[in-house]
Design a protein around this nucleic acid. Sequence first.
DNA 1: TTTCTAATTTTCAATAGTTGCTAATTAGCA
DNA 2: TGCTAATTAGCAACTATTGAAAATTAGAAA
Lengths: 140, 140
Amino acid sequence: MRSPEELTIAFREAGLKVTPQRQLLFRLLHNNCAHPTADALYSVATEQMPGISLRTVYQTLNDLTSMGEIQSIDVGTGSSRFDPNVSDHHHAVCDECGAVHDVYVNQAPEMRGLNGFAVADARIVYRGLCATCSELAQHR
Amino acid sequence: MRSPEELTIAFREAGLKVTPQRQLLFRLLHNNCAHPTADALYSVATEQMPGISLRTVYQTLNDLTSMGEIQSIDVGTGSSRFDPNVSDHHHAVCDECGAVHDVYVNQAPEMRGLNGFAVADARIVYRGLCATCSELAQHR
DNA sequence: TTTCTAATTTTCAATAGTTGCTAATTAGCA
DNA sequence: TGCTAATTAGCAACTATTGAAAATTAGAAA
């Protein structure tokens, strides 16, 4: 996603208002590679702006998603996660600690067994143990 | 998953009872490639057995899943879908009609950008238009 | 066949995640 | 400074799923 400053301009140009709540979320999401859930963002946001509503967090996340600034990802952990990295990439989820990492593949794998399906997008979710957790597992 | 007959034996051997509700679900799932949700199965089940509870459907699906007879898949459509095909395969979802199809890939793609992650499983979800829906789109 | 009991089903309440609605507030233009 | 459409907060509602407890029942044993 673009920087908070660029988003400020983009929002105004689109006829959208730049509220303190939105600015806060722009900042919390920028360069955030933690793949936070709406609720996780809400917790952090509340520290800096007590009284901000969870509804506003969801609303802003949906706005940013439909503008293509962030993407919503579902790695099967119950709630949606949000990723400011909108480049072509995939995700690896640690079954132990739940961390979600961005990963890249050389080429999207070609699928067999289905004729005439026009693929628009392919998303891969890897599951396993992250480096830290597999280290810890070794010492047991 | 195994046939209803084989499952009947397997359940009894595991000390589990074979109730009419379970037998019905065995039949509804066997050779079912529609990737139904719990609710979809409940609807069909209700026709043949009015009064069956949604809770029982969930319970039986969870039991079959933990026995490895079916697998639970999440293609981002809100609710879990259940697949009696437990071979190593992936899924293609039509953005138009919502149909979910089984697909196969030659080899799981190797991921880059993350060191030390021990991959246990990789799941690919393709999105796009199925053959039927892309046909229809052509004629517009 | 009847009895018994643990397993199962049903019912209903509860939970998590998310969205709909509305009144009150406010950004930002005139 | 005022105005107004956009936004926020608050809360109800909704979907998907699970928890808990009472009632029922499969299937082994008598």
